[in-house]
Simulated scan of single mutants.
Amino acid sequence: MSEPRIFNLANPVKAYGNEVTQLELREPSTADVRAINALPYVFSAVGDGQPTPIPEVCAKYISRLAGIPLGAVDQLAFTDFQALSWEITNCFLQHLAVPTSPTSSDTPSTPPISGN
């Protein structure tokens, strides 16, 4: 989600005195993550460990990333809230990468430490 994503809402919400029919969701920044101090998902301990959005955290990200107050987030149709929550969750998950082991050319060579 590098470009802002436009969401057409099923039902308009009121934000800052205006009727809002679509939201522009920008990509989260490090500042957003630090301000909210939580990731928008957990991995389920039951079943196959699939990610599950955390509604309260997702609401905070929707508010920050779409630039609307939390009161407007509370007005969202459930289907809109769910779609936005998964969009945010997937944005974080797509950036997960399994760290690779450094190759011998990537690591400085150090002499072994002897026990003597």
Score class of each variant (00 low, 15 high):
residue 47 G to D: 04
residue 66 A to Y: 00
residue 95 H to W: 09
residue 14 K to T: 15
residue 88 I to A: 00
residue 10 A to D: 10
residue 98 V to A: 10
residue 76 L to S: 01
residue 49 G to I: 04
residue 42 V to C: 07
residue 100 T to C: 08
residue 113 I to S: 13
residue 26 R to V: 03
residue 52 T to N: 11
residue 22 Q to V: 09
residue 24 E to H: 09
residue 4 P to K: 12
residue 102 P to C: 12
residue 81 F to S: 01
residue 99 P to I: 09
residue 4 P to D: 13
residue 87 E to A: 11
residue 5 R to P: 02
residue 40 P to V: 07
residue 72 A to R: 01
residue 86 W to M: 06
residue 116 N to Y: 15
residue 60 K to F: 02
residue 81 F to T: 04
residue 113 I to M: 13
residue 100 T to E: 11
residue 85 S to R: 01
residue 98 V to M: 11
residue 59 A to R: 02
residue 102 P to H: 09
residue 94 Q to T: 15
residue 59 A to V: 05
residue 91 C to R: 15
residue 83 A to S: 09
residue 60 K to G: 03
residue 50 Q to N: 08
residue 9 L to R: 00
residue 67 G to Y: 03
residue 114 S to D: 13
residue 99 P to L: 13
residue 105 S to F: 11
residue 40 P to C: 10
residue 16 Y to V: 10
residue 96 L to F: 08
residue 17 G to M: 02
residue 78 F to N: 13
residue 72 A to D: 05
residue 51 P to Q: 09
residue 23 L to Y: 02
residue 84 L to V: 03
residue 55 P to C: 07
residue 106 D to W: 06
residue 64 R to W: 00
residue 71 G to Q: 07
residue 91 C to A: 15
residue 100 T to M: 10
residue 65 L to R: 01
residue 53 P to L: 10
residue 35 A to C: 11
residue 41 Y to R: 03
residue 100 T to Q: 14
residue 109 S to H: 14
residue 113 I to P: 07
residue 49 G to E: 06
residue 40 P to N: 10
residue 22 Q to K: 08
residue 62 I to P: 00
residue 63 S to P: 00
residue 4 P to Q: 08
residue 58 C to P: 00
residue 28 P to E: 08
residue 39 L to M: 07
residue 85 S to T: 06
residue 58 C to R: 01
residue 87 E to P: 04
residue 105 S to I: 09
residue 31 A to C: 14
residue 6 I to T: 07
residue 96 L to R: 09
residue 46 V to L: 12
residue 9 L to T: 02
residue 14 K to A: 13
residue 53 P to A: 15
residue 102 P to N: 15
residue 70 L to Q: 09
residue 10 A to M: 08
residue 91 C to K: 08
residue 76 L to Q: 02
residue 16 Y to I: 13
residue 70 L to E: 10
residue 58 C to I: 05
residue 67 G to W: 01
residue 84 L to M: 06
residue 54 I to R: 02
residue 94 Q to V: 13
residue 50 Q to W: 10
residue 32 D to Q: 06
residue 77 A to W: 04
residue 116 N to V: 14
residue 41 Y to L: 05
residue 41 Y to I: 04
residue 8 N to W: 12
residue 28 P to Q: 07
residue 6 I to G: 06
residue 14 K to S: 14
residue 8 N to H: 10
residue 105 S to V: 06
residue 80 D to L: 04
residue 102 P to E: 12
residue 114 S to F: 11
residue 90 N to Q: 09
residue 80 D to S: 05
residue 87 E to L: 15
residue 68 I to L: 02
residue 91 C to N: 10
